[in-house]
Design a protein around this nucleic acid. Structure first.
Length: 493
RNA sequence: GCGCCACUAGCUCAACGGUAGAGCAGCGGACUCUUAAUCCGUUGGUUGAAGGUUCAAAUCCUUCGUGGCGCACCA
């Protein structure tokens, strides 16, 4: 950090001068009776004479964002947590010998004032300041008022500055809060209870991903940050819960991109005695409810795309979707034929694809996923890529599972949970084989989870929804970093 | 991990081989209804870092750093 900065020195000097006249900007603070938004909503429409007659007293506190000084009169705009700006008017006639203190103000300082509401000649609701106090002196200059802060690196690294000067950012995170609250309320209304399961796992299971590894000194064991809560939540189904959910972080030790942050928020919920078909209707209801309570509509823009969440959403089977693109299931299931087909259609198949990985999965993500702009359920996945899902009754090669896609991205993954402990053991064993063949992300065997299933887990359906991606969709954000307050970056220097 | 692009004053940007500049912010001054206030004056730079080419480098080359985007992996 560059400490020798003239601008900071000047502000420190002002701080010293304030202290020398007996007013410490960092002392006990200020208690405001009003929010800016409250005053503007209540009195913003009142005319000049009404306000004069009412003689309304008020107090507000906030950060100085703009100052216009006229020698014996000054107008200052502050913003507070209500996300509104309100104008303050400092007049020498009123403040007398205290008036010169405003020379020590800087944009960025936090001030508390009390006074009387009035309307200026231009009709703006304004506080005529009678008493004021700097409650926090800002030593660093804020970005310029007109262009603001646009440098994305600074915006992410110094999110506090981004939040001060870019109102749209606060709006996005207010939306995020509303979306998560909507989901919580929805599930609680349906009788779900929220639980918390471990973030540190001795075995990283419940998803196909590379974990972060850590070490517990006292226990002298390796632990992994969880890649999914799934296996713990299902243990709770064994324990007798029938409707549970968890909203929390997962950690995956993989690449960072506009759609991936190493730590990201998922909701997983489980409901006993229901299946994946139930969850499709349930998901439509849940996401529409979240959209209505955040966006306020089921129709909205995502970039150039017009998205319409009005149910029912399109439903396609996995191989049906491939077939629509001209790839018959028979060909898709034959590794050699499907590679040949992919090459012929110009689909890039990575050369170092691990043995355990399946070609049709690659083809699906290249060929089908990008076309799924409007909400679409893809159902009936192959068992090989679904080691925790229940097989279809009439076709054991497929499972009772769906993934939800919107704007070409996976938003949710759900299935009827496999509760046959013997089948589950076999699936884990198949995953172990894949791991030996070089698939780093294959599931690990989890003996305790199998023991739990052996006690008997009721039939159940479970689903995971990527909260960050849902927030991206509903806030028209095109990078996951725009919906995470502090996205992962390399340390400075 | 690979490729492309960017990095110049606190912020937003010029200068693209020939003396590093503007606007805003800051500092000094004028101003009692402004809102990107206005007017006069003025400070501020190891041009991301280190090497190299050149009489001369912000500018060309190399390496490194950080970021963005794309690809890969995944959600």
């Amino acid at each position: 950090m560059e400490e020798i900065n003239e601008l900071i020195e000047q502000r420190k000097k002002k701080l010293g001068e304030l202290r020398s006249i007996g007013t410490d900007p960092y002392d006990e603070g200020f208690s405001a009776a009003h929010y800016a938004a409250e005053l503007i909503n209540k009195h913003g429409e009142s005319d000049h004479d009404t306000l004069e007659a009412a003689n309304l007293r008020c107090s507000v506190a906030g950060r100085i964002l703009a100052m216009r000084n006229f020698g014996k009169l000054a107008f200052i705009h502050i913003a507070d947590a209500s996300d509104e700006r309100i104008q303050l008017c400092f007049a020498r006639d009123i403040l007398q010998d205290k008036y010169p203190i405003i020379k020590k103000f800087d944009v960025g300082d936090i001030v508390g004032v009390s006074g009387r509401l009035f309307k200026t000649k231009t009709g703006e609701l304004t506080v005529e300041v009678h008493e004021f106090k700097i409650v926090s002196k800002s030593l660093r200059p804020l970005p310029e008022k007109w262009h603001g802060l646009t440098d994305v690196e600074t915006r992410y690294r110094q999110r506090y500055v981004d939040l001060i000067v870019n109102p749209a950012v606060k709006k996005t995170f207010a939306m995020r809060s509303r979306i998560i609250k909507a989901i919580r309320d929805f599930l609680e209304t349906k009788g779900f209870i929220e639980v918390e399961t471990p973030m540190m796992h001795p075995i990283a299971g419940g998803a196909a991903a590379k974990p972060f590894k850590t070490f517990h000194n006292a226990l002298d064991i390796d632990l992994y940050l969880r890649i999914a809560p799934e296996l713990y939540l299902k243990r709770l189904l064994v324990g007798g819960y029938d409707k549970i959910f968890e909203i929390n972080k997962n950690f995956r030790n993989e690449g960072i991109s506009t759609k991936h942050n190493p730590e990201f928020t998922m909701i997983e919920f489980y409901i006993a005695y229901k299946d994946y078909k139930f969850l499709m209707d349930f998901t439509e209801e849940l996401i529409c409810d979240a959209a209505l309570r955040s966006v306020g509509s089921l129709k909205f823009k995502y970039g150039e795309l017009d998205i319409d969440l009005t149910p029912p959403w399109k439903r396609l089977t996995f191989f049906g979707a491939l077939e629509e693109k001209g790839l018959p299931e028979g060909t898709a299931r034959d590794p050699e034929k499907s590679v040949e087909w992919a090459r012929r259609h110009g689909i890039n198949i990575p050369k170092d694809l691990p043995e355990g990985k399946l070609i049709f999965d690659e083809i699906f993500s290249e060929l089908v996923e990008p076309t799924l702009v409007q909400p679409t359920f893809i159902t009936d996945y192959p068992v090989e890529i679904s080691p925790l899902a229940k097989r279809k009754k009439d076709n054991p090669a497929l499972v009772d599972r769906f993934e939800l896609f919107v704007v070409g991205r996976e938003l949710a993954n759900a299935f009827s949970e496999l509760n046959d402990p013997i089948d589950q053991r076999g699936r884990f064993q198949a995953q172990s084989e894949a791991k030996k063949m070089g698939d780093e992300e294959a599931h690990a065997m989890d003996e305790d989870f199998l023991r739990a299933l052996e006690y008997g887990m009721p039939p159940a359906a479970g689903e995971g929804i990527g909260i960050d991606r849902l927030v991206m969709l509903l806030t028209d954000s095109h990078s996951i970093r725009d919906v995470i307050l502090f996205p992962q970056l390399k340390p400075e220097q």
